[in-house]
Nucleic acid binder design. Structure first.
Lengths: 225, 225, 225, 225
DNA sequence: CATGAATGAGATTTCATTCAT
DNA sequence: CATGAATGAAATCTCATTCAT
């Protein structure tokens, strides 16, 4: 966890205590409950009473762990960001195989998260819906997830160029271009939920092929994947 | 404007109708104020009192024009969708020139709207933030804007294929792939506002070149644009 | 109309005008609409807008005819009292026949009004529900209807005593005793509406017979009616 | 207390239940305050703020004990019905003496309640004024108080007939006839309050004698009471 | 005279936050 | 530490009354 964030973000309530095991456990339960409620209802609509109930604690207890609703919200969002960050870091560095394979695997991981993990998607909803009130959260997300995520894809691109699989492209400057369809899909789900379905498998494959068409080195041996 | 939408969406308050000029003006002012407030604060956070004040009317006056807060919100969102829809329709049909030129012009129009028109972007924020409560709005947006927008880009793609400028690609099935970077940019602005700037001109050009790389027919005469 | 009432009651809006025919007509329509609304909804619940609509005039017009809601209410209640009063006076003085017949006819008239005439019953509801706020109305009702009504029945009683049909009884001092079952029936309807029905014909007959048993002179020739 | 009423009536807020002593006390205070306010102002006119103030609690506290204004009203009315019901049941079963004595004692009890107990009278006002909105309350009152009350008087009548004190009369079918003067008196007070006084003692005696005249068996030994 | 759009005080209800137990 | 009853500010919505047209 980089030290460049204001305490507000990373140390919201480190103020005093050495934290017993019991307390740490409670904290986790509360955070989980808060995450669920906020994701389901948004910042304004989430009721502290419901969070407390879901966590199995009294309303007042929340205030022993978090300054106020805003602090709880920020902690909840951070707790959503954390795992995404970790998974991201774990994978790439340990990756083996061709750049094309790595690219495909990385995309599939992303779609897997977006498609299956509600929390992951709702995180983006929260950042968009209530992010202006909590700019720290946006910054945190940007630096830890977006920046690192794009860096990762840039790496993959570079590796492919080095191996001759890929050619130079604008995506070197803007790796977002490679990820954009996944972002678009996420938005689609956020806006339309289950009401306007899409064939995800076909879409992912289309994304991948489209991307390859844009970056693959035409001189390379063609190993259609 | 298809007639398939429930009146709720398209005619929320056309019920009585005669409407004097004065009233029409008032309605417009209120709608504008509401749009601004909702865009700035979201559905929950927007206070009717603020909307009234911004519109220069009393709280009760709002209720002369709209059933309740939800109706006002829906009208506000609709008023944001409408112009997008119109601009969309105007342009494409009158298009001239090569498919490549048309593609570039269309992209530039979209980025122009996203980048400059706050309202256009905030509309998406509202649809993401509060859309679950008002699915009609999402459906309306999907059918009128998204569906037509993607159809338009598919047309362009087909025209290019017909002229030999473009080749077949997964974008025929998912025109979203062509637009995704613009969506990603929109999200970027929604999440980070002015805090993590991007060189928009370079980004747009990168998007365009990246897209061309994916769909251009390599056998065509190369006319770098 | 006795002069002993404050103008408030009898002359609520006589302030200025000579009243055109048109105005008198409008006044009547408004009063009728108000009466209906107040009877249906009570003072608090009745909306001036509904009264205006029912009368086919604009809301503001009501204020040309009545000071405010309270004045309109008082006028409405008075307009309900008036006809009861008139019918009362018309009948008795012109009555012919035996005291027993007169008593029966009078009772039947009362039940007829209570049972069939909603307005008549709702008047009592209004006097009970909202009367404390408008004591004038209660006083007016007391003096004009109750006092005169009981006086009437006392007359009948006396006439019967004079003819030898009736004997002396506590009802001479409290003629209410003779009318009480009708009052009880009215209350019944007010409290239970149509939910706990009563066989009215049998009840009226029971009331009459019960009353006769209490006041008939046992020495008189028995002419069962 | 028959079990045939929907919980809504009898158990409006017993849901969770454990209730500390402190809470029970608070509930009682609130209910008392509500009863007073509703009796004084009616359902519409009573302001929750006033009830809260009278109870010495904050506005929000009311909602900890009652769902909403309607629930509070229903509870208040029920709390008025309850004691009437109890006193009714206690007395009759323990009655001693002649039917005439029993009748007199019962009447006096009723008048005692009507005359002295404001709450008892105001209950009827509420049932008449606002009962249409809450038919459950009317039904409850009918079944628990009215039905049982009339049944009681029918019993007395039958006992008197059995002992030879009374003769057959229409009051066997409609015991209301025996009680009607008390109802009329209650109405009188509701409509005129203290403004048109009545000599209650003389009225009660008149009622009793009048009633006796209607039902006493003329062949019985005359023991003028 | 008549209108009905506009007002804004006021009523109910919610819920983040506090604090006595 | 934990509780959850109590608070009261704030938000939505209604409607009697006014007044420019």
């Amino acid at each position: 966890m980089s030290a460049s964030y204001p305490e507000q973000i990373l140390d919201d309530k480190d103020s005093s205590a050495p934290k017993t095991a019991r307390q740490r456990e409670r904290d986790a339960v509360i955070l989980q409950a808060a995450t669920a409620e906020f994701a389901a209802a948004g910042y304004e609509n989430a009721r502290l009473e419901d969070i407390a109930q879901r966590a199995g604690v009294a309303k007042g207890t929340l205030y022993l762990y978090y300054e106020d609703k805003a602090a709880l919200f920020k902690a909840a969002v951070r707790s959503l960001i954390q795992p995404a960050l970790q998974r991201l870091q774990e994978r790439v560095m340990s990756a083996e195989g061709s750049a094309v394979d790595l690219l495909r695997a990385s995309l599939q991981q992303i779609y897997g998260e977006i498609a299956s993990d509600n929390a992951r998607r709702e995180l983006v909803r929260l950042l968009i819906a209530d992010g202006r009130r909590f700019p720290d959260l946006g910054d945190f997300y940007h630096d830890e997830v977006i920046a690192k995520g794009t860096a990762t894809f840039r790496m993959i691109l570079w590796r492919g160029i080095a191996t001759g699989e890929f050619r130079h492209s604008p995506a070197e400057e803007f790796p977002q271009l490679m990820l954009a369809p996944a972002v678009a899909f996420s938005n689609w789900k956020l806006m339309f939920g289950e009401r306007h379905q899409m064939d995800l498998d076909r879409y992912v494959e289309a994304h991948f092929q489209f991307l390859l068409a844009a970056i693959r080195n035409p001189d390379a041996g063609s190993d259609r994947t």
